[in-house]
Design a protein around this nucleic acid. Structure first.
Length: 876
RNA sequence: GCCCAGGUGGCGGAAUUGGUAGACGCGCUAGGUUCAGGACCUAGUUCUCGCAAGGGAGUGCUGGUUCGAUUCCAGUCCUGGGCACCA
């Protein structure tokens, strides 16, 4: 009976599960390896083939490391708080817990079907009260350290989602999830003081083995810049100064006006009575503008004069104080000194409002534009003649001497907005007391659990649903008995994922979040694999929490994730055409348009010729009609545009791993995911490639098993190690697979295994020793078949801990080698010489080659380049 | 606009301390096997000229360095991703 993956896979999954083959225990006598996947949010859609790419890769590494005698921690769990379950609850009234549990069961079934070697005894779920307890406990630690505080801050409110969002969750004025509009408004919220760790979050990136572009994204997000802070006294307000941050203290003599952000606290104080109405009008106008509009209108500068003046501390010049929305309250001090000669934004503003522009750095033409490059200072008294770095240093010294400022560092990173107006998240373990103070819930009372709810809809006036549950909100302080209110907000989804990797070290501990012994043994995570979309969200937040825990002596490493790898997305092809948009999903004229007739006006497609609004339509890949190699739209005329992008329901191109497993088995699915291309690179899924890896598995099976009947049986393989050629092929395969595993080049490792299977029987059947080594090499990639072959070869125990084969170095050296012979840099022959041949011999053999002789003729080579063992180039 | 990554056959990809471009797989072609096959086996498959031996071109494009460039350098185009008034 031919290779039948389903029976084999079911058998070994059952075996691993009942024997707990992959259970991990602390064993200080062995080296450890902690290999972790970013745990998934269990959505109701289940897995698609994109998810397992990283999981299959880490599984191969985990299996390989175990066979190398390393103690491997390889856990999986669920990041199970989250918005979709709550939205589902709003629609159906179903408790998010029930939805979540159903989804988890689905995900787990799908993962198990792939034969991933997780230690399922360590499975965790962030919504489990036994987990929430410790998430809240860590929040308490943060609070005790003064790193959690409540503040009235301008927040990103998303009306559609009914909650606020962190800065990192907003892109282009829209929510990261769903793309809903976001508005700015002031609200009292929980904040985490991540800015206190900005410097260390930046510095410690250096020691991490992470992709450079991810480190760069974090560096850019933290956005450190060096400069100076300068105090500008406000005229007629003896006790007030405007503090600004600047990266260009060398241009201070060119500061001709100041600008406050509209939200700046001094706005009200300094505005003169005559200007009050104008200022008020401007503030109203800007507060109505959404962040998005402000970005779109970035080039058009608006502002209003306050009527007040400040003194430039370096030359006592009186300069006007303006208000403008191009200055952001959330960066630096919310106020700037404007140097229109040397800053493009200030230049545009000065031009718009007719403010003076002074050149203080020579080298540009400030009648045309701001000069932001380096040059020598002019019109700057004691800075004249200095270059930029020297002028900066000199200015900072002067400011310090005068007491009007000094060197300073500023960061773009802002404090982390940590509360959400949702139900399905961790409640804050705090009590708001009658007297207006806030205290933490005692550790012994944790976790604070969510109450049951009849209705999950968000409240009005930015109130979370929990605010409506009086029986839960209203409570008493257990210490003083005074009445107290619980906090109606919950933590963002990031909270649970900030420390799950620590809980995995000791997941069933009821006395502590983790034991120091387990943490010291398993941490740090040696290999962390997951999507690049978390570059500045999860990965920054988790590093922050980890550093706080480190400072408290609760963890032993400065950083949580030593090596990071981002698997490229698995994409899908989809096919697009356009129809006239009649709104409400209808078309107005029934015509089809191909992509070359369409241009984009912002995000809306319009017809090139008529400017008519169009709508995108998609044909699922398996419904496309092909004619003469061209994909056609349903009108059988319009040529479809092929687009490669991530899988999505709306495109109808999502592939479910269940279907692949059902048809070809888990091993073929795993193999294909790895064989499709380099792990780090995105690649389009194509069902056509799977039969190729399936055939490879069939051949591997037949190598060792005779397909005689329903049972089949192992071939009677000759004993021993086989011919020299077979031994060499095996040695080369071991060498290649081993080194590729080390580099995570799993696609080329599989290729080496394919070559082995193709060639090993060329001069006789596989000998037993060679077959046994092959089964072990196959194990990280196709573990079910590998176990089956191992068993058929007569082994009673699983090969999960069998020793990894080693290549005999002597067999890796060939007796005869091929040398490329070039004449004038062009390849003219390939010659074979003994491996130990010297240059003279190679040259002699080369010159005897007929084709080489033809090209050399009777000329004497002017120069001969010999690369030992590889190439000989004759230059005439 | 700025920053980062990447452009190699019909397709996914392999090969970079500069040294035989196209491993492996898909697809395709031919042959074998089979009652038959969308199964299996063998051979071939970058393009192009040639009966062949062999020649020419070729790693987005244009130049440069070199005996030799997919690899290094300069410029340029395209694709994907990130950031976007951060003073």
């Amino acid at each position: 009976m031919p290779y039948a993956p389903h029976a084999i896979e079911a058998k070994w999954q059952e075996y691993w599960s009942t024997r707990k083959t992959f259970r991990a225990e602390v064993d200080t006598s062995k080296p450890k390896f902690y290999v972790l996947d970013m745990f998934p949010y269990p959505s109701s859609d289940g897995l698609h083939v994109g998810h397992p790419k990283g999981y299959v890769a880490t599984d191969a590494i985990a299996r390989y490391k175990r066979m190398c005698g390393v103690n491997v921690l390889h856990p999986m769990g669920w990041d199970a708080f989250g918005l979709p379950a709550e939205q589902h609850a709003m629609r159906t009234g179903q408790h998010p817990r029930d939805t979540t549990q159903r989804n988890v069961a689905q995900f787990k079934r799908q993962l198990r079907a792939l034969g991933l070697s997780y230690d399922w005894d360590r499975e965790l779920d962030t919504t489990d009260p036994g987990y929430v307890r410790w998430t809240q406990w860590i929040f308490c630690k943060l609070h005790e350290q003064g790193l959690a505080y409540e503040a009235e801050v301008p927040v990103n409110w998303c009306p559609e989602l009914g909650t606020v969002l962190a800065n990192e969750e907003v892109r282009d004025g829209k929510s990261d999830i769903g793309g809903h509009p976001v508005v700015r408004l002031p609200l009292k919220q929980w904040m985490l003081r991540i800015t206190a760790y900005a410097e260390r979050l930046l510095e410690d990136l250096d020691e991490l083995d992470w992709p450079e572009h991810i480190k760069k994204m974090q560096r850019d997000w933290i956005g450190r810049s060096e400069g100076a802070r300068v105090l500008f006294p406000v005229i007629d307000h003896a006790d007030e100064s405007i503090e600004v941050f600047t990266t260009r203290p060398d241009t201070l003599f060119g500061a001709t006006y100041m600008v406050l952000a509209p939200e700046h606290p001094l706005v009200d104080k300094v505005t003169t009575p005559a200007r009050r109405d104008a200022v008020k009008a401007y503030l109203e106008q800007t507060s109505r503008k959404s962040e998005r509009v402000r970005i779109v209108e970035a080039s058009a500068k608006t502002g209003v004069f306050t009527g007040a003046y400040a003194t430039n501390p370096v030359n006592d010049a009186e300069i006007p104080i303006w208000i403008a929305d191009y200055v952001l309250i959330s960066y630096g001090t919310g106020a700037i000194m404007a140097v229109p000669g040397h800053d493009q934004r200030d230049y545009e503003f000065a031009k718009t409002f007719g403010l003076p522009i002074v050149e203080v750095v020579a080298g540009g033409d400030i009648s045309r534009e701001a000069f932001t490059g380096e040059g020598v200072n002019v019109n700057s008294e004691y800075l004249n003649g200095l270059s930029m770095p020297a002028a900066k240093r000199r200015m900072i010294e002067q400011l310090e001497a005068d007491g009007s400022g000094g060197g300073a560092v500023s960061y773009k990173l802002r404090d982390w907005l940590f509360s959400r107006q949702r139900y399905w998240g961790e409640p804050f373990p705090v009590l708001h007391l009658e007297d207006g103070t806030t205290k933490l819930v005692p550790e012994s009372d944790l976790p604070v659990e969510l109450p049951e709810l009849a209705d999950y809809k968000p409240g009005s006036d930015f109130q979370p649903p929990l605010a409506r549950v009086a029986s839960w909100i209203e409570t008493r302080d257990p210490d003083t008995g005074q009445s107290a209110r619980r906090d109606p907000n919950t933590m963002p989804q990031w909270a649970g994922s900030c420390w799950y990797y620590l809980r995995f070290c000791d997941p069933r501990n009821t006395e502590a979040a983790w034991s120091p012994e387990a943490e010291r043994y398993w941490m740090p995570v040696d290999l962390y694999v997951g999507g690049a979309e978390h570059a500045v969200l999860h990965l920054l937040y988790a590093r922050f929490w980890h550093k706080v825990l480190y400072d408290l002596g609760l963890v032993s490493t400065k950083e949580p994730f030593q090596k990071l790898l981002n698997p490229g997305m698995i994409q899908a092809r989809s096919y697009r055409y356009f129809v006239a948009d009649g709104g409400d999903g209808s078309t107005t004229n029934g015509r089809f348009y191909a992509s070359d007739q369409v241009r984009y006006d912002g995000e809306t497609p319009v017809h090139r010729a008529t400017g008519e609004g169009l709508r995108e339509c998609w044909v699922p890949p398996d419904e496309v009609r092909w004619k003469d190699g061209q994909p056609l739209a349903p009108d059988e005329e319009t040529v479809l545009e092929e687009v490669t992008e991530k899988m999505s329901k709306s495109r109808g191109n999502v592939v479910n791993p269940d279907d692949v497993v059902a048809e070809y088995g888990a091993d073929a699915m795993r193999l294909y995911e790895m064989f499709i291309g380099p792990l780090r690179k995105a690649a389009p899924w194509s069902t056509d490639g799977i039969p190729g890896v399936f055939r490879f598995l069939q051949r591997a099976y037949r190598l060792i098993v005779e397909e005689v009947d329903a049972e089949d049986r192992a071939r009677e393989l000759p004993p021993g190690e086989g011919t020299v050629a077979q031994q060499r092929l095996l040695a080369r395969t071991i060498d290649k697979v081993t080194s590729d595993l080390g580099k995570l080049d799993l696609n080329t490792a599989i290729s080496a295994l394919m070559v082995f299977v193709r060639d090993i029987e060329k001069d006789g059947p596989v000998p037993q020793g060679v077959a046994a080594a092959f089964a072990r090499l196959l194990a990280p990639f196709a573990p079910h078949l590998a176990e089956e072959l191992w068993e058929r070869l007569g082994h009673a125990e699983s090969l999960a801990y069998a020793s990894w084969p080693e290549a005999d170095p002597a067999l890796l050296v060939d007796e005869e080698i091929e040398i490329a012979v070039q004449v004038q840099g062009k390849l003219r022959a390939r010659i074979h010489v003994p491996a130990e041949a010297d240059e003279a011999l190679v040259r002699e053999v080369a010159l005897n080659d007929a084709n080489v002789r033809r090209h050399v003729g009777d000329r004497e080579p002017r120069r001969v380049i010999y690369v030992p063992g590889r190439l000989l180039n004759l230059v005439l």
